[in-house]
């Protein structure tokens, strides 16, 4: 790459200091976080600045952080009854779902659940940056549409709306794109079950396709496990806890 991600980050920070909420450079990739109010003008500046010239929007990824860092197994200590079967545990696919497992509530701090991540590329200068923006409200996540900046944003925002229910203010044509006609819900949210809510079949008596509640049980084959692996531990925090 022509310019190192550290350099890119430094240039973004020095130009847009007060708009940037957070920024980091991990795994050789530059990432900045902005508040929803500043999203549009940040991206506009990134596109138009001579120095950085991000002329391409590669992708918009919606992310639902509702279950971030939650696992399904207690791994710190082994119990005398052994570990549970994976099928009995809670799973991120069952967040907020009632059933034989009870209800697992969604626990997030307000305004930190839904985010849109914009992947930008500068063909002219050959560098990349990632811009993350959390929607202010978890119940009605809304962000400004950037279709006027990049035409490519049109379908990408439709996808994020369809799969995560993030609304894009000012989008010219915010329809569902990947799911079925008349689909209910936003399937990539963490509280949407993996098996879905409805199944379809052809009903011979009625002579048409009918929708019915799913008849299969949700299950987990491999439980989600987070291990505190010492190989990945941050040496600074490790020393602090040891002391």
């Amino acid at each position: 790459m022509a310019r190192s991600p550290e350099k890119v980050l430094e240039q973004v920070r020095s130009a847009l200091g007060e708009w940037i909420v957070d920024s980091r450079c991990e795994y050789g990739e530059a990432e900045v976080e902005v508040a929803p109010d500043n999203l549009y003008r940040t991206l506009e500046w990134l596109r138009d600045s001579e120095l950085l010239a991000f002329d391409q929007l590669l992708d918009i990824a919606g992310v639902d952080y509702a279950a971030y860092g939650q696992d399904e197994w207690i791994t710190d200590e082994a119990t005398n009854t052994g570990f549970s079967r994976g099928v009995d545990g809670f799973s991120t696919g069952r967040l907020g779902l009632t059933g034989i497992y009870g209800v697992q509530p969604i626990e997030t701090s307000t305004g930190r659940r839904f985010a849109a991540v914009y992947h930008l590329l500068s063909v002219r200068h050959n560098h990349r940056v990632r811009v993350r923006c959390f929607a202010a409200d978890d119940d009605l996540p809304m962000l400004d549409s950037i279709v006027p900046l990049w035409a490519a944003a049109n379908w990408q925002e439709r996808e994020a709306f369809d799969l995560f229910g993030i609304l894009f203010n000012g989008h010219p044509d915010l329809r569902r794109i990947l799911t079925d006609y008349g689909f209910v819900g936003h399937p990539f949210r963490k509280d949407f079950p993996l098996i879905g809510n409805v199944e379809v079949r052809y009903d011979e008596n009625r002579g048409r396709v009918v929708y019915e509640p799913v008849s299969i049980e949700p299950r987990v084959l491999v439980p989600r496990v987070i291990r505190d692996d010492n190989r990945y531990a941050d040496p600074a925090t490790q020393e602090a806890s040891d002391a």
Binding site: D59, A61, A67, G69, W155, V222
Partner: peptide, 21 residues
């Protein structure tokens, strides 16, 4: 998030952008 599964995987497919045009 440090688990044995990706927390979120987003695939950037070239055809998606082309189809949008």
């Amino acid at each position: 998030d440090g688990a044995n599964k990706p927390y979120r995987l987003k695939l950037r497919a070239p055809g998606f952008a082309h189809m949008a045009a």
